[in-house]
Amino acid sequence: MYLVSDEQIEFILNNIKQRGVEMEDLQNNLLDHICCILEQELTEEQNFEIAYEKVIKQFFNHALWEIEEETILLLKYKNYYKMKRFLYILLFVSIGYNIFVLSKLSYDSYKQRQQVNEWESLGKITLEEGFADFIEKVKTDHPEKLTKEYYCVNFIGDPMSDEESEWSAYRHDTAQERKAKLYRLQEYNSMDSVAGIYNKNIVHFFAFRGSGKNIDKHIQEHTPLLKNITLIKDQRKLLSGLCNEAKTDIGFVSQLVVIDKKGKLVYRCKYLTNQHIFLSKFLKTLTTDVK
């Protein structure tokens, strides 16, 4: 077996370098490979340089550095694909995150809008049907009350809940009539002006409709201000039918609560048997109890 000498090794290594291969790792691999071939194929009689030239030409089509170029290309492409994959993952994650955030935002705003709609429309209806007279009376008899920041009137509850319909004048209506009525109730948006006047001076005045088990849930959902109030569930009376001249039923109220700006309970009316009792009681409270 032919043995490649140290000088020949040096010669081959230099030649590999001259042929443009710069990666040391690759130089060593090629050197060993060439030596192996030479040692296998060469005989002592043959000329080393001629044999080397023959062997080295097997390694490439045009130039030896093509091997290095191919190596670099493979390594580069690997990184390129890794980077591409990473970017794709990043893209999908960020799209997913954005969808999540947007849907959460839109859900929150939908929920909020839903609450506001229910809150405002019902609140305004209560003002109009149940408490408009009362507010007028406060305005004429106790104008000083409106200069203090006391109350605003609101009404919470679910007009379509089954339990409630048992008590309200909805109970003889067909589902379709209820729907129509509900729609009408929701059209009271023009009441903004009424609510607006009082909102300026009145802070919170809640009328609870009796929604049975649901009422606690409603209170929790709708107003954190009310969390300390104990409901008296058995005091359910039809309010609007009595308050309203046309005797149009819009629901019923189990109790009325007044809360000041800081969320402190200042008035609770439990006996909403008729408008006058309610009004006089409430007015009395306004003039005597509220500090």
Binding site: D25, L26, N29, L30, H33, Q58, F59, F60, N61, E66, I67, E70, T71, L73, L74, L75, K78
Partner: peptide, 11 residues
């Protein structure tokens, strides 16, 4: 071929 083997090994 050497030209194919070494790039693959390195990669």
């Amino acid at each position: 071929t050497e030209g194919a083997l070494y790039p693959t090994l390195h990669s």
